[in-house]
């Protein structure tokens, strides 16, 4: 595993209007890592993701991606760099076919290799191949999640942010999903996994951050955090 730093966040502050949601975040993701950010509802997980992808403007602090400062960049520029955010709630295009959904994943990046990347996505998610001409809105929840991740993969991500991918999936599908995340990771994609599902996430991650009220209460290797029952009780309410 290389130690090249992919994403480096320093003292990041962000929020909506007067209310500050992120109150000084420091985070790094190295090439080839799976890093998980855990926390319960409303602690700022989605705001963190939205700030990293340029939807929400950072109020202070720095975000460096592969060495370049991106905290003032707009979402299309950030996507073009290969920082791809698969949002909570899938946000697929329900009125477009599965194929068109995937193709739009390469709207801003990796467009010349669209056809071969689509094949690659179909190899990872064979069910999408069966549904290629179907409107995305007619897919099941699990299939929509696969499509959302597939759309992200179409951009050849350097870093893939997965926001609550297991939300609303049956336990069996959650198992399958985490296996697929490992498979994508094995192909060399660094992953920032933002989850409420503590047990599964800590199993797949290299390192973990625990987010509580807009700040990281704890960070460390996934194994260390998994082994600490006190922290789980305090910050995750388990």
């Amino acid at each position: 595993m290389t130690t090249e730093t992919l994403l480096a966040v320093e003292n990041l502050r962000a929020g909506y209007g007067e209310s500050e949601v992120l109150r000084g975040i420091d985070l790094t993701v190295k090439a080839g890592e799976i890093v998980t950010v855990l926390g319960s509802n409303g602690v700022g997980k989605s705001t963190l993701n939205r700030t990293l992808s340029g939807i929400v403007r950072a109020q202070a602090g720095r975000i460096r991606f592969e060495g370049a400062a991106i905290e003032r960049e707009k979402p299309p520029a950030i996507v073009a760099r290969g920082l791809i955010h698969v949002p909570e709630g899938r946000r697929i295009f329900p009125n477009l076919s599965v194929r068109d959904n995937l193709d739009l994943g390469s709207y801003a990046r990796a467009k010349p290799r669209r056809t071969q990347n689509r094949e690659r996505v179909f190899d990872i998610f064979p069910r999408l191949r069966e549904r290629v001409a179907q409107y995305a809105g007619t897919l099941s929840g699990g299939e929509q999640q696969m499509l959302a991740i597939g759309r992200g993969l179409m951009a050849e991500p350097r870093l893939l942010i997965l926001d609550e991918p297991s939300l609303g999936l049956s336990p069996l599908l959650v198992e399958e999903l985490f296996a697929l995340i490992m498979k994508i990771h094995a192909e060399g994609v660094a992953i920032l996994l933002v989850e409420q599902n503590v047990v599964e996430s800590l199993e797949v991650a290299d390192r973990a951050y625990i987010l509580a009220e807009g700040q990281f209460a704890l960070s460390g290797t996934a194994a260390d955090i998994a082994a600490d029952p006190e922290l789980k009780r305090t910050y995750l309410g388990l």
Binding site: I55, I78, P87, R91, F93, L104, Y107, A108, R151
Partner: peptide, 12 residues
């Protein structure tokens, strides 16, 4: 239909 999803796909 999905403005937020479009932004995250890099659509301006």
């Amino acid at each position: 239909k999905e403005k937020f999803g479009a932004q995250l796909a890099g659509i301006d």
